[in-house]
Simulated scan of single mutants.
Amino acid sequence: MSIERLPRRTTAHSAFWMMVRRVTVLAACVDVALFCFFLAVGSPILAWINVISVSLYLVAYRLLQQRRNRAALILIWTEVLGHAVLGTLLTGWGAGFNYYLLMFIPAIMVSGNWRTVVPPLLVLFAAYVGLHEVSRFYGALEPLGATALTVLYVFNISVFFAMASSTARFYYAMVRKTEGKLRDLATRDTLTGLFNRRHLMELAHVERRRADHEDVPLSLVIADIDDFKQINDRLGHDAGDLVLRQVGEALRESCRSHDTVARWGGEEFLFLLPQTSAEAARDFAERVRRAVEALGIGPDAQSFHCTVSLGVATLDADESLEEAIGRADHALYRSKAEGRNRVTAATLEADVALGQDSAQVIDLHPEATGLDGGPEDRPRPGGVPLAG
């Protein structure tokens, strides 16, 4: 589903019918109150009009439950239009029944594009002006006392304000919800639900500036699922996706409140650890390693297990984020070369020649790599993180 279709198909369309259901219930309650009011002031004709209105709203609500939306909408519009016209003609323009016609405006505006909304808006405008002129010419056909008319006006204008405010608030909440969905689409990995690479880098630059300003450490941890290609080859890509989701969830649960983890690419994940020293970052990585090692993959949590290798780096004051990620990346590859399922911490002294050192370690330990052509077992260029 494209982003262009998302708001209209899943949010605006659903919001419209949710609003219709709410308005139907509220309108029925209003008519019950009006029924009691007109009985109290001795106007049975107006009271029974509200009984008919409540019955129509009950039928409309039932139609909405049955997804017969068009029939329900026609019934609601007929009731509101008829009730507003009859109420205005019988009690006069000063009773405030005319305001209910204005409630059609938001309903019309969200029901289509300008080509479809302009004609009904013009009809509504003409009906409103025409009702005013007819009411002024004939006066009230079923006049009320001054006190009753004032109470009725205050009631109707209060209902109009309440419904208009509720409708506006409802759509504002739906807009915020849509913004949240779009933000998730832009910042999260769809498979694991973790943040994606781009968003993590945005957060990392913010944390880097904060670390420099407050003179606190900032550490990075890269984790890579061991033998992931073999999992895909032996168990299939569905199993591989399951591994990514469950490992991703385990990594998220390992984070503290101020930590961030993202899917960095393929089977790699990157942790951003603010206010974390090198020693604390190593301890954190070890906890992550043990958590994944103990994780049962599968619905019964007993199917199979996997492990991760990790590389840790703490930013130096004079290096860029990219350079620190590169050091963590090469520390990860040393963990791979030395047997997997382990944590390796990068140091500035040991990583002066990042690419050369990493390649030498793998060359010196060919039996540990188990090279089978998979991307996790190939030396990557010096200082360049795997793009995934």
Rank of each mutant, 00 (worst) to 15 (best):
T78G: 14
T78K: 06
E79Y: 04
E79M: 09
E79W: 05
V80F: 04
V80C: 13
G82P: 11
H83M: 02
A84K: 02
V85L: 14
G87D: 00
L90G: 10
L90K: 11
L90F: 15
T91L: 03
T91S: 14
W93G: 00
W93C: 02
G94Q: 12
G94F: 02
G96M: 02
G96W: 00
F97D: 00
N98M: 10
Y99A: 08
Y100M: 04
Y100F: 15
F104M: 05
P106R: 04
A107L: 15
G112S: 07
G112R: 06
N113L: 09
N113I: 05
N113V: 09
W114Y: 14
W114H: 11
R115A: 12
V117C: 13
V118L: 15
P120H: 06
P120R: 08
L121P: 06
L124T: 10
A127H: 04
A127L: 15
V129P: 07
G130K: 02
V134N: 03
V134L: 14
S135D: 09
R136C: 05
F137C: 06
Y138G: 00
Y138T: 08
G139R: 01
G139T: 07
G139V: 07
A140R: 05
A140L: 03
L141D: 07
P143L: 07
L144V: 09
G145T: 13
A146P: 04
T147E: 13
T147I: 09
A148W: 01
L149G: 10
T150P: 01
V151A: 11
V151I: 14
L152T: 00
V154I: 12
V154S: 07
F155D: 01
I157F: 01
I157Q: 00
S158C: 03
F160V: 02
F161I: 15
F161Y: 08
A162G: 14
A162Q: 11
M163D: 09
M163A: 10
A164M: 11
A164Q: 12
S166T: 12
S166D: 11
T167D: 07
A168S: 10
A168T: 13
R169W: 05
F170H: 09
Y171F: 15
Y172E: 11
A173H: 08
A173R: 07
A173T: 11
M174A: 15
V175Q: 14
V175T: 06
V175P: 00
R176L: 15
R176D: 15
